[in-house]
Amino acid sequence: MNVSSEVETGRWAAVQPWLSLVVRLAMAVILVAAAIPKMMDIPQSIIAVRAYRLLPEALVPFVGTMLPFVELLLALFLFAGLFTRLSAIVWLLMMAAFSAGVIWAWSQGYSIDCGCFGGGGDVAEGTTNYPLHMLERAGFIVLGAYLVAWPRSRFSADGWMKGD
């Protein structure tokens, strides 16, 4: 009994850093996929931010422009595995903010595309898929939460810093 659970702990200890590596890289790829289209069409990114009708107009262009840069920066940290736990916390904070935005737009009955992966703004009635977006968002939050709990991963700058 005792022995078998110890074996399992040992197995988990061996698997966890690899799983964390996969999660970390997946998150980085998701961020890059989200940032590139925004970067290519900043005006549309601004319109997408404005579509939520959450932020004051004075802030809208600034947030719309900075968002892809911040996403790419976070992706860089996740790729390198540098300050992984902190990066995962930042990821979760961003997800919380975006989800709040989508829930807000949904509750107000706005017909908008989330703009998560570029584009965004208004879409034709009926093509807004809020439930699917929320499901996707829930998956992203699970990824982030996992990495906060188990930030130690293979091939990470964190590991190199500690000297293992």
Binding site: M66, V70, L73
Partner: peptide, 14 residues
Amino acid sequence: SVVGLALFGALIFF
């Protein structure tokens, strides 16, 4: 430095 430079660059770009 990376964060600072990137945000500064983004600000200039903005």
